[in-house]
Simulated scan of single mutants.
Amino acid sequence: MFSFSRVVLASTVLFSPMATLALNTVEQAKQDATGLLRCWEPTEDGNYSLSKPFFELCSYMPAANNFESFHVNGVDMSSDNYENMIKMFEEQHPRHALVNLCLQEAYQLQKPAIPSQSLIRCICKRSGCNLPVPFLQFLDANKKVIEQ
Rank of each mutant, 00 (worst) to 15 (best):
96 H>M: 09
106 A>I: 04
108 Q>K: 15
116 S>T: 13
78 S>V: 08
71 H>S: 09
86 I>M: 15
87 K>H: 08
66 N>P: 07
114 I>G: 04
94 P>L: 08
80 D>Y: 10
69 S>F: 15
115 P>D: 07
77 M>T: 04
75 V>D: 01
109 L>I: 14
60 Y>L: 04
114 I>N: 07
81 N>A: 09
88 M>D: 11
59 S>L: 12
75 V>K: 00
120 I>P: 01
59 S>Y: 02
91 E>T: 14
55 F>A: 02
93 H>G: 06
53 P>Q: 08
99 V>D: 00
45 D>N: 09
60 Y>I: 02
72 V>A: 00
70 F>T: 00
49 S>P: 00
51 S>G: 06
67 F>I: 12
112 P>R: 14
70 F>L: 03
110 Q>E: 12
104 Q>I: 14
50 L>T: 04
112 P>H: 11
48 Y>S: 02
48 Y>P: 02
88 M>E: 10
46 G>R: 05
121 R>L: 09
108 Q>N: 10
99 V>F: 00
115 P>S: 06
74 G>R: 00
59 S>D: 03
107 Y>I: 04
95 R>V: 05
107 Y>P: 03
94 P>A: 10
119 L>Q: 14
46 G>I: 08
50 L>S: 04
45 D>Y: 04
78 S>C: 05
101 L>K: 04
69 S>K: 15
114 I>Y: 09
78 S>L: 06
65 N>K: 12
67 F>V: 10
57 L>I: 05
83 E>Y: 14
54 F>E: 08
72 V>K: 00
50 L>D: 01
74 G>W: 00
54 F>D: 11
93 H>Y: 12
114 I>R: 14
67 F>A: 07
88 M>W: 07
82 Y>E: 03
94 P>I: 09
67 F>E: 07
116 S>I: 06
80 D>F: 13
111 K>V: 13
48 Y>L: 01
85 M>T: 02
66 N>E: 07
113 A>Q: 07
100 N>P: 02
97 A>N: 03
77 M>R: 08
120 I>S: 03
64 A>Y: 09
64 A>V: 13
46 G>L: 05
63 A>E: 06
62 P>T: 07
51 S>Q: 06
88 M>K: 11
43 T>M: 08
92 Q>H: 10
61 M>R: 06
108 Q>V: 10
102 C>M: 09
93 H>K: 09
76 D>S: 11
78 S>D: 07
95 R>C: 04
57 L>S: 02
73 N>P: 00
82 Y>W: 13
66 N>F: 12
106 A>L: 06
122 C>P: 01
65 N>G: 11
75 V>R: 00
120 I>N: 03
72 V>L: 02
83 E>M: 09
116 S>L: 08
99 V>T: 08
122 C>I: 02
82 Y>F: 15
47 N>H: 10
74 G>M: 01
110 Q>S: 14
49 S>T: 13
89 F>Q: 01
116 S>E: 06
87 K>R: 13
44 E>T: 11
100 N>G: 03
68 E>G: 10
74 G>H: 01
77 M>H: 10
70 F>E: 01
117 Q>P: 01
52 K>Y: 10
84 N>D: 13
84 N>E: 12
72 V>G: 00
50 L>A: 06
46 G>C: 05
92 Q>W: 07
67 F>G: 02
53 P>K: 15
51 S>Y: 09
50 L>Y: 05
55 F>K: 02
